[in-house]
Design a protein around this nucleic acid. Sequence first.
DNA 1: TTGTACGCGTTATCAA
DNA 2: TTGATAACGCGTACAA
Lengths: 335, 335
Amino acid sequence: MTTAQRPTLEAVARLAGVSRATVSRVVNGSTTVAQPIQEAVRRAVQELGYVPNLAARSLVTQRTDSVALVMPEEATRVFSDDQVFPGIIRGVSQELEAADKQLVLMLAGSPAGHERVERYTTGRHVDGVLFASLHGEDPLPGMLARLGIPVVCAGRPLGSAEVPYVDVDNVGGVTRAVRHLIGSGRHRIATIAGPQDMVAGIERLTGYREAMAAAGLPVRESFGDFTRESGAAAMRHLLAEHPDLDAVFAASDLMAHAALRTLREAGRRVPEDVAVVGFDDIETAAYTEPPLTTIRQPIVELGRAMTRQLLRMAAGEDIEQALVLPTELIVRESA
Amino acid sequence: MTTAQRPTLEAVARLAGVSRATVSRVVNGSTTVAQPIQEAVRRAVQELGYVPNLAARSLVTQRTDSVALVMPEEATRVFSDDQVFPGIIRGVSQELEAADKQLVLMLAGSPAGHERVERYTTGRHVDGVLFASLHGEDPLPGMLARLGIPVVCAGRPLGSAEVPYVDVDNVGGVTRAVRHLIGSGRHRIATIAGPQDMVAGIERLTGYREAMAAAGLPVRESFGDFTRESGAAAMRHLLAEHPDLDAVFAASDLMAHAALRTLREAGRRVPEDVAVVGFDDIETAAYTEPPLTTIRQPIVELGRAMTRQLLRMAAGEDIEQALVLPTELIVRESA
DNA sequence: TTGTACGCGTTATCAA
DNA sequence: TTGATAACGCGTACAA
């Protein structure tokens, strides 16, 4: 296997009859190079198929032109069936592509994986780090921020760390959903809450409680972890505890989907007997039986927004500590 | 912002009272260093929080310790609702983590994106390239292979290029599904085929045709692009053309899901009037109405296998040109 | 077993 | 406007 030697700046310089420095200037778009020379250099680059060596460039510029996206590995499991995981990646990827930077994806599930992420990111091998879907109080974002490494989180980070984040308006969305239920005559509204070690789970429960309190209605709570399985168990639990319920707000569409099925198995009609509202607006939501009323969150836009914030930080700009994207109630047939 | 200067080999060497070379040897696990010195070096590394500069290392080793995973951007749209996209990523990520290499994810949707991928990968900024879910005859994998850059594809690449790949047994899986339908008394079996510019679409149709021919049954074909929307349209088309059909094999679970709904809207009962079989075994399959009989493909394992092959190539080993993973018929209630 | 010295391919500083 | 030349941080012959 002939490892075809890549052409270097040196080679281009020789072919174009100029110095390395000049070639470098042309490649990096410096304006201080005479037109005819620019063209000669470009021709040589073209002819040789020259591509800059990023390692060499990083060594001197102290930039890597790459950004890490860190996701807990469970995320790919928990969200394996919805669009959150691919959606964030797509948004991040779009913005990075526009900035001509690479996306280094790190799934950090195991403790070993987490340690690896820590080594890699603190080692300044990337220009910035995006965190998605954090569980509990991960100290890593705060640590990186203190090291002066640009960091942005998806969702308000738990704990005291002052790390910039982008989130969706969980509380506002849930409030609208609960009002919608009340407006259609429901008063015995239960919730299947999400995991309380994730900010999305916490805030959606908060939204439910606040909306119910505002209407002077009593709460009926049960908990899941965003998955279908947990949603089914929670729904069964609710039916046993509060057989009189006439509506359910589930903190994820997957749990709502499982609730639909569990209700049917229990002989309850949706929406006649029990109305159901989910959260996310995954594609499946339009295909459930009956189609699911839910709260849409702009997930691709979330990925894009957090990336833009990060790039601005990396460029030395000051950015808003928090950015909240709007959610929207999508009314279908289940409520 | 005090850009805390990272410690270098030099700093560690000074603290440990040895030469840079020795520190380098310890860091890279050379056995030719005296025990007490090793320990002194390790202590110094610990104390300073030394992390090797990857750019500098790449420059001299000619390795980057990173691997690119290239996916057409449409994949994240087409598969936004199933587990293929996250599944492959998870498998790839697991194997790379074990090998202590980074995953550079590149979504190549637009022509500009494709060109960017080409520049990046041919520029040898990664030690190898994984391709997922190719459409049509992409020349890039073959080009990279000829450049001596390790490449592995998910699914047999179309066209003449001799690029190593890992695939699932599409034909075998479909054959089993069709036999299952025939075995339960169905004879007017239609198919909703996948896109014919993707090898998965082509092979699943081939499997259907071969199994039908082997049983001496006539085919009824309609085409989609793996999405629900296209599946619904294809199902309507089939009902119009072949109102007598008593079974449908859809080349993806999403299309099968849409078929279930379309059949119900048309007043057909599943499985009494029409049996339905899908392909993929996405999580939703167990939650459709009725639960979907389908062909499971080991998608995470596909990601792992292709990564192992790539790493072996990158290590200079010879690898099998093709690797085919088994599929499995999962019988639920729809057939 | 350890250290010296060179080179990897770029960018940046300074003269010319 | 252009060209030498010095870093950037590391691995590794080669010498000791």
